[in-house]
Design a protein around this nucleic acid. Structure first.
Lengths: 189, 189
DNA sequence: TAAGATGTACACCGATCGGTGTATATCCCC
DNA sequence: GGGGATATACACCGATCGGTGTACATCTTA
């Protein structure tokens, strides 16, 4: 009976972060109060304020944790050549957008809702977006594309546009892959 | 002394809508309460609820009014050929994004913050985005582009991506015009 | 000038906001 | 087994939330 309990035994901090990710994605940041957040995370309000200085810090921490998962999920290296890995990012995004519970890129959502660029969560969102572009630039350089930095910015435009499309219209983004391939081809890749 | 008063004599409804546009753009929809909205619009709270059924309807009305202005501002016809008019849309967007008070596309902002696609304001935002794509498709068809509908969707991706870039990073979107020109060229335009 | 519509001023409602104070329970480690 | 850290329960704070009730002022129009 040693390995009987499959419960992962997560602490209050993790529970708050995962719950925050779920609730903020589904309903928005401002419309979820700390009371409800604590209730759904099964964490006392007092504990929240022992781990975080305030709601803003919870938001930033949730977004920061999401950045890692997001990154790992989209940019997973499958041993494919660089071009295929670029394509795969957009295929995975399209696949996510098909899910009915897709609520758009959480970083765009946070930045759009918070407005204030000095908000800790906005800073995290900003960095994540820079990271996405940098990752594109890396892959493109590996693949021998011309002007990889410029092309990486253009692919980021497509990526964000597709995320917005997903949250506004729901469903897949059929024009995305074509645009990506056109841009890649125009840069010799 | 007939034309002495330059005051436009706006009614409570117009004042509420223009104030809502300004405040929602600057601080977000959920973070502006009806009390403050009424105070800044110099309209009594009672009047608000005589013109609108609730805050949600104010949001939708503000967005609806903004759709017309937005459309007129971006898609103004200067007697240019279709291709130049497409380019001009992105040049105007870039020009707006350079302004320090640029707060991103209000329709993307509303959809991102509200989440609920059934919200009246989300419906307005959705329609506006369809209108943008339709306008692109019209210009592209006039210009003789191949697959104008597909290309219009791709240009909308770029447009929304550039709007997001503007609100997240601030400043211009240098890669935008190049991507547009590449896509246009790939479709024979 | 009387009447009805429109607008304002202001108090009020229950609910929720983000955040704190206090006292008790549970855990791990020495 | 005792002690400190960690967590919980719960009451409480002033402020604000969206929305309403009521009484008075102003404007238009017949």
């Amino acid at each position: 009976m040693a390995t009987a309990a499959p419960v992962v035994k997560t602490g209050p901090r993790e529970r708050l972060i995962t719950t925050a990710q779920r609730l903020f994605a589904a309903e928005g940041i401002r419309s979820v109060g700390v009371d409800r957040l604590c209730a759904e995370a099964k964490v006392s309000k007092r504990s929240l304020y022992q781990h975080f200085s305030g709601k803003d810090e919870v938001v930033a921490a949730a977004l920061h944790a999401q950045a890692d998962q997001h990154y790992l999920g989209l940019h997973r290296d499958d041993g494919l050549p660089p071009r295929d890995r670029v394509i795969a990012v957009f295929e995975r995004l399209d696949h996510r957008a098909r899910s009915p519970e897709f609520q758009g890129c959480p970083f765009i959502g946070a930045a759009s809702e918070l407005k204030d660029r000095a908000h800790p969560a906005s800073v995290v969102a900003h960095e994540q977006k820079l990271g996405l572009t940098a990752h594109f630039a890396d892959l493109l350089a590996q693949g021998g594309a011309r002007e990889p930095d410029l092309l990486a910015q253009q692919l980021t435009l497509i990526f964000d546009g597709a995320s917005v499309h997903g949250v506004m219209h729901g469903g897949a983004t059929p024009a995305t892959l074509g645009a990506v391939e056109t841009l890649l081809a125009a840069h010799g890749m």
